[in-house]
Design a protein around this nucleic acid. Structure first.
Lengths: 127, 127
DNA sequence: TTGACATGAAACCAAAAGGTTCTACATAGA
DNA sequence: TCTATGTAGAACCTTTTGGTTTCATGTCAA
């Protein structure tokens, strides 16, 4: 059934990525690193939270394959790995097809299939 | 500063979306609902977990604006709202530009040495 | 060598997340 | 009306998450 788009196994790879994206601090870090690579202290200086907390975030981002951490002397430079976001972007792309198709379906469902709203009956404009 | 792409406020809207996407069960529900709308019992029947657990997931998906829940008699039909994914997709799109530009930059950083800023001084290369 | 700086890492904590069971309510249908 | 079904929701439990503080390690630069 041509399930090339969304296999179950895909989710295993996706999980660390979406997990990494679930936190606003981590998304801000990604956005910042998109501007330029930065050391841990550099990154941490932009947040209120402690350095160890930032380090944990960076670790999660690395687990998601979203950044690379390169030791440089006594610093650790964090570099964005944009390809890491690709899998998530592709997963979302799957739903592109529904942005119109399913939307129309939703409209139909709302306008025709809801007899439990006696007050606001929408006249379903089926063409 | 042309920050049209990624405002801080965007994150507030994004948070419930990325939070909803962070769980594999919820992603599977979305994938299933893309196929066709389904009642709660319908959705729950496809998982090992209990119905109340599924109900919680559906609530989170609704909070993220990813599904709509339409009462139909004694059932509640869950319908995919693909537009809800749009904000997340757009956020990721921002990084498209770096999939080549930054990737090259990463290579450079790895292979030579990383010209990042120490705390005080960033040599911002304004061209 | 020695001090200052950048990071590593452990121990600990509160809150959120994901799950369960049990109970109660509403509705379709005989 | 009565019963079975579908859902709502409370109460509770365990694990994960995001955060902290504290201390140790490694490296640059005098």
């Amino acid at each position: 059934m041509a399930a090339a788009a969304l296999r179950k196994d895909d989710d295993d790879r996706l999980q660390p990525v979406f997990r990494a994206l679930a936190d606003p601090t981590r998304r801000r870090i990604l956005r910042d690193l998109a501007r330029e690579p930065a050391s841990i202290a550099d990154v941490a200086s932009r947040f209120e939270i402690s350095r160890p907390a930032v380090v944990k975030h960076l670790a999660i981002l690395r687990e998601g394959g979203l950044i690379a951490i390169q030791p440089k002397g006594r610093e650790r430079i964090n570099v964005l790995k944009p390809e890491g976001l690709r899998s998530a972007a592709e997963w979302l792309t799957f739903f592109d097809a529904f942005w119109d198709e399913k939307l129309a379906r939703l409209k139909l469902a709302v306008e025709s299939d809801v007899p439990t709203s006696p007050k606001g009956r929408k006249h379903a404009r089926r063409h």
